[in-house]
């Protein structure tokens, strides 16, 4: 068992969730209630990581975040180090490839709130901000929580993008799923088996939790 890999995976998943939470709430809510030109394209862009081979996604991420790219240069000027093969770069990639997992459940959750409930809030004198906090968020929270759990579990399990973007640097970019791959390559099956069991348990617990939340939401709206 490589504890540093587990630690890194959990760290990555945690920070991905922290950064994606406000971002996905914003995007999901906007997609749920606004009609605008090019909405289908925006939704498609959010969904693309679902179908794109991780290697392709990783390739474009390296291209757009690398030392020669404007984002990479800007980031280096800002922090003194580049994005490729670092934890920060991994985090950035993780946010991109988790977009659909975070945005889509949140979008569905906001879509499920009837328009006239929000209108009733405005007619009751609540500001848009107050409506968001005391009506929209409480009604959408199960969807938001599902999204976060999915994102968390999915980050732990991602392999291809992480390998492309982060490489395999112990303590910096070597996540649990990569450590497992490494161990199998070295015929260290007992270690790989243990780490796999850890990932499997986390995934099963997470998915069960998401389904349980779904039932709770159905009851709520019944």
């Amino acid at each position: 068992m490589e504890w540093s890999a587990l630690d890194l995976s959990l760290n990555l998943a945690f920070w991905t969730c922290v950064i994606l939470l406000p971002l996905a709430v914003l995007v999901g809510r906007a997609l749920a209630w606004n009609k605008f030109r090019g909405k289908a394209f925006v939704e498609a862009m959010v969904a693309v990581p679902l179908v794109l081979p991780p290697t392709v996604l990783g390739y474009y991420l390296i291209l757009s975040l690398g030392e020669t790219s404007s984002i990479g240069r800007f980031y280096e000027a800002l922090t003194g180090h580049g994005l490729v093969f670092t934890f920060d770069g991994l985090l950035f990639a993780s946010i991109i490839f988790n977009l659909p997992f975070a945005v889509q459940p949140m979008q569905r959750a906001f879509e499920a709130i009837p328009m006239n409930v929000r209108e009733a809030a405005w007619c009751s004198g609540m500001s848009h901000w107050h409506t968001f906090w005391s009506i929209e968020l409480p009604l959408a929270w199960t969807g938001i929580l599902s999204a976060l759990v999915l994102t968390f579990a999915h980050t732990l399990g991602e392999f291809g993008v992480v390998l492309m973007m982060g490489g395999n640097i112990p303590g910096e970019t070597r996540t649990l799923s990569i450590a497992i791959y490494d161990r199998v390559q070295m015929f260290d099956f007992s270690s790989a088996g243990f780490m796999s069991a850890v990932l499997l348990s986390i995934s099963v617990i997470a998915i069960t939790f998401v389904y349980a939340l779904g039932y709770r939401r159905q009851r709520h709206h019944a």
């Binding site: 009837p114 006239n116 409930v117 209108e119 009733a120 809030a121 007619c123 009506i135 409480p138 009604l139 709520h220 709206h221």
Partner: peptide, 12 residues
Amino acid sequence: GYVFQDYALFPH
């Protein structure tokens, strides 16, 4: 004061 057709109460 607006009473909506399906009342639009805050379900939570």
